[in-house]
Design a protein around this nucleic acid. Structure first.
Lengths: 201, 201
DNA sequence: GGCTAACTGAAATACGTGTTCCACTTGACG
DNA sequence: CGTCAAGTGGAACACGTATTTCAGTTAGCC
């Protein structure tokens, strides 16, 4: 996950020169980017980021190689705890409740960072893509478990359910007005729709 | 809905000068734009549109005033038949089936024109906004009717249901792999989730 | 403290893309 | 046909924004 510039072994031989202010600035830039992402500002420019971080534009680009690489790093870092949350959910005893709770969490996350879904599609973000894949995997696991538990209908393929849930959480979050109460309504509809059906045409 | 330049009454007095090639070019540009929207190209530039239409860039901008106005006109025109389809659905006898059919249609539409949802958010498109409002209204009507028919649960506000359905169809369509069969699965889940519930926690 | 290379930031540059200019063409009307 | 304003297209321009340059600054090591 580390960026690993030209150095071969990070801190093995004392030859490495890595200045403290550079490290600090890197954190500042990353923090500023995350903040701007959370604020959902339409203007996610290098200039805005550098101003927020209190550094020059060159520093922003130089530290990460390019703007895209910076976004990639920032988003991947934001996604990580969500993936972890999903893994934790896998350990909860009640499969359905675990899935339900996870869904609410994902909606809350996407509510905050909805701007991501809007603009990130057209970028090439390796680290972010990896985290999204991880998120997808853990989601599939949660669904499969709930399914084995008899909480989810089996006439629809599990992967289809994954896509459905993934897109729906994104969509619901996108409709700004995502109060906890609304989220609950949405999750309710989805979970009920996914339940093994008693009567269907 | 017509653009109505400087002329007061279209064809009343013979004073109006409106050249045939200008009208033809207008159609070409509009058609090219619609085609590009359907193709979901990432590059919806004036240059691409003009090339596709076989006219100069100036013509594209001059005819509509600006790129945004052109997009607005094109999208509004694409949306119109969908709104009409919704109004037709209101006349169908079975409220639930009418809603269901309309949803499938909307998903199909958004599947084709998913690119719209991605980029149009940040533009100012009066005509498109009007059509979307109309679409929303007819959707709400369809839902209300299905609800009055006892096909939809009443513990969730109708407008919330509208938002949910609107966003979900958009989201589902966005996940490119929207084959008719998949659409059916999605609609199935939503409709079942919306049905008056027999058992819920 | 002094030396040096890593690091910095403001300004210059590169670039994609929407809009305007303008010399030229063409449809409409007599 | 002849006239001429509406219309045209490609080039120039405007503009926002990512990236690079470079003269200066500073952390790290002696």
């Amino acid at each position: 996950m580390e960026w690993a510039f030209q150095m071969s072994t990070p801190a093995a031989s004392g030859v490495t020169r890595r200045r403290a202010d550079a490290v600090r600035n890197r954190q500042r830039v990353l923090g500023a980017t995350k903040t701007l992402l959370a604020e959902g500002r339409a203007t996610l420019t290098v200039d805005a980021i550098s101003r927020k971080a209190g550094v020059g534009t060159a520093t922003v680009v130089r530290t990460f190689g390019s703007k895209e690489a910076l976004i990639d790093a920032a988003v991947a870092e934001l996604l990580e705890p969500l993936v972890q949350r999903g893994r934790d959910a896998l350990l909860e005893p009640d499969a359905e409740q675990a899935l339900r709770g996870f869904l609410v969490e994902v909606i809350a996350f996407q509510s905050t960072y909805w701007i991501m879904g809007e603009r990130l599609g057209e970028m090439d973000l390796p680290a972010t893509t990896a985290q999204r894949a991880a998120l997808n995997t853990v989601g599939l696991d949660l669904i499969t478990r709930a399914r084995d538990d008899g909480a989810i209908r089996t006439d629809i393929d599990a992967s289809v359910v994954t896509v459905l849930i993934g897109e729906v959480t994104y969509a619901v979050a996108r409709s700004q007005s995502a109060s906890p109460a609304l989220s609950e309504s949405y999750v309710s509809v989805i979970m009920d729709g996914l339940r093994p059906q008693q009567s269907r045409p």
